[in-house]
Simulated scan of single mutants.
Amino acid sequence: MTFPFRPLRAAAVAACALALAACARSPAPPPEPVNFIAEGRPEKLSDWRLLAASEGQLVLNQEVLPYTLNTPLFSDYAHKLRTVWMPKGVSAAYQADAAFDFPVGTIISKTFYYPRDGAGQAVLASDDKGDASRLDLKKVRLMETRLLVRRAEGWIALPYVWNAQQTEAVLQRTGEQIPLEMATPQGKQKFTYVVPNVNQCASCHVADLKSKKFEPLGLKARHINLGGQLEQLAAAGYLHGAPPSAQAPRNADWRDPKASIDARARAYLDINCAHCHNDKGTANTTALHLEIGAPANQHLGLCKPPVAAGAGTGGNSFGINPGKPDDSIFVFRLKSTETGVMMPELGRTTSHREGVELIRAWIGAMQESCN
C-alpha cells in the first residue's frame, strides 16, 4: 500500500532540491547606495557606504569610480586607492589648469595601504601603482582612508584610521601615529606612519592663502589624463566640458624611462611640492614656484639663494646648483627626515630614495652655471 506514494515523495524531494539550487544561484541583493552626509562628522567610515571590507576584500560601492595619477605624491611608500563619487544629476566642470569645479555632494576618498611581506609581519617599500580597485585583505595592510566631502559651506577633510582587524575605520580628527616595520632593498627599517590631523589636511589643500580657497590636489587634468580617465569620468556623468585626452594637459610619469628627465622631475615636483610652492600657496613667501608650467628661472630654484639661512640649507648656497646636485638645497631637504629640515614637511617620515635620485639626476644634467 505504500508503493504508490514513493514517486510522489521522490518528486517532492526533487522539487525542493531544485528550489534550493535556485535560491543558491540567485544574486545577492545590491548594497545600499552611497550615503552623502550633509552635516556633522560621522564616527565610522562605513556610515558613508563608499567602500567596505567584505569576504576578505575591500570593495567599492556601485558608482564609486576609482582613478589614478600619472605621478603620485610620495607618502612613505604607501599605496593609495583613490575614488570619486557624485550624486545623480550633477557633475564637475572641467578646468584645464586647476582642480575641477566639483558640485555639492561630491565625495573623494583616498585609502592608504601597504603590501605585506611574505611573512605578513612587515610592510613593503614599493612604488604606488594606484590601479587596484579591489584589495585582497590578506595581502595588504590598510592604514587610513581620507575623505574630502563637498558640502554646501565648502570642503571638509575627514581622516579615518582602520582597526587592526581591517573591518572598520574610525574618525581620528587629531591624527594618529602608527609604528611600522618596512622591508626595503637595504633591509628592514622601523618608522612611524603619521595620519595628519584635520588642520594639517587644510594646510596642503588651501590653494589660495589669501582667500583660504580649499581644493582637491590630484583631480586635475594634468594628473589624471591617462588611460582614458577623462572620458571615463565623462561617461559616468561626473565631468562635463572636458576636451579629448589628446588635447588636455598631461604630466609625465616620473618612472617612465621614455620621458625626458626634465619632464619626469618637473612632474615629481609638481605633485609633491607645488600645492604649497606657488605664488598663492602657503609657501609663497619662499618665491619658489614649482608648478609644472612655471618658467625655469630663479623662481624654480635655479641659482636661487635661500630666503633664510640655517639648518634647512645644509650649508648650500642655492636651491638648485646646476650640475652639482650634492651642493643643492633641493636634494639636501628631499633626503632629510629631520623635522624642520625635510621637504615636503608633511606626509612622510622616510626619504623617497628613488625620488631623490631622480632630482639628483635632473640637477646633474643641467648645463647652467651660478658663477
Score class of each variant (00 low, 15 high):
residue 313 T to F: 11
residue 182 M to Q: 14
residue 126 S to F: 00
residue 54 S to N: 10
residue 127 D to Q: 12
residue 321 N to K: 13
residue 169 A to I: 04
residue 291 E to Y: 01
residue 307 V to T: 11
residue 311 A to P: 04
residue 257 P to N: 09
residue 307 V to A: 11
residue 303 C to T: 02
residue 232 Q to F: 06
residue 75 S to K: 10
residue 331 V to Q: 10
residue 308 A to H: 11
residue 91 S to H: 14
residue 124 L to M: 14
residue 39 E to Y: 15
residue 286 T to Y: 07
residue 27 P to L: 07
residue 209 L to G: 00
residue 184 T to Y: 06
residue 360 R to N: 03
residue 1 M to I: 05
residue 248 A to S: 09
residue 294 A to N: 08
residue 77 Y to Q: 08
residue 153 E to Y: 10
residue 142 L to R: 12
residue 185 P to Q: 06
residue 130 G to W: 02
residue 128 D to R: 00
residue 271 I to C: 02
residue 200 Q to E: 14
residue 245 S to Y: 06
residue 287 A to I: 10
residue 11 A to M: 14
residue 69 L to G: 00
residue 7 P to Q: 11
residue 298 Q to W: 09
residue 127 D to V: 15
residue 213 K to A: 04
residue 348 R to C: 05
residue 123 V to E: 03
residue 114 Y to I: 13
residue 232 Q to K: 15
residue 95 Q to C: 04
residue 274 A to F: 06
residue 267 A to D: 01
residue 310 G to Q: 04
residue 222 R to P: 00
residue 130 G to V: 06
residue 133 S to H: 13
residue 89 G to S: 03
residue 118 G to R: 12
residue 369 S to A: 13
residue 224 I to W: 02
residue 122 A to H: 14
residue 63 E to Y: 03
residue 55 E to P: 05
residue 364 G to N: 10
residue 92 A to K: 11
residue 77 Y to P: 13
residue 58 L to Q: 10
residue 285 T to Y: 02
residue 20 L to W: 13
residue 4 P to S: 06
residue 159 P to I: 14
residue 263 A to Y: 01
residue 229 Q to N: 09
residue 304 K to S: 04
residue 81 L to Q: 15
residue 130 G to H: 01
residue 175 G to I: 11
residue 359 I to T: 01
residue 338 E to Q: 15
residue 359 I to M: 15
residue 85 W to V: 08
residue 200 Q to F: 12
residue 322 P to F: 08
residue 342 M to P: 00
residue 327 D to E: 15
residue 349 T to V: 02
residue 15 A to N: 03
residue 352 H to M: 01
residue 235 A to L: 12
residue 306 P to C: 03
residue 65 L to H: 09
residue 230 L to C: 04
residue 333 R to G: 12
residue 133 S to G: 04
residue 364 G to C: 05
residue 243 P to W: 15
residue 336 S to M: 02
residue 362 W to P: 02
residue 115 P to Q: 11
residue 240 H to Q: 13
residue 192 T to A: 07
residue 263 A to W: 06
residue 6 R to Q: 05
residue 360 R to Y: 07
residue 86 M to I: 07
residue 285 T to K: 11
residue 300 L to F: 15
residue 318 F to H: 14
residue 254 W to V: 00
residue 23 C to R: 12
residue 252 A to G: 02
residue 249 P to V: 03
residue 146 R to D: 15
residue 233 L to M: 12
residue 37 I to N: 08
residue 288 L to W: 06
residue 170 V to C: 02
residue 69 L to E: 02
residue 161 V to W: 07
residue 60 L to E: 09
residue 304 K to A: 04
residue 59 V to K: 13
residue 368 E to G: 02
residue 180 L to C: 11
residue 78 A to I: 01
residue 185 P to S: 07
residue 37 I to K: 15
residue 36 F to E: 07
residue 152 A to Y: 01
residue 201 C to P: 01
residue 352 H to C: 06
residue 289 H to I: 03
residue 219 L to R: 05
residue 356 V to M: 08
residue 347 G to M: 09
residue 214 F to S: 01
residue 278 N to D: 09
residue 161 V to C: 05
residue 323 G to V: 12
residue 72 P to M: 01
residue 220 K to R: 15
residue 94 Y to A: 05
residue 336 S to A: 08
residue 204 C to S: 00
residue 305 P to W: 11
residue 87 P to I: 12
residue 31 P to H: 05
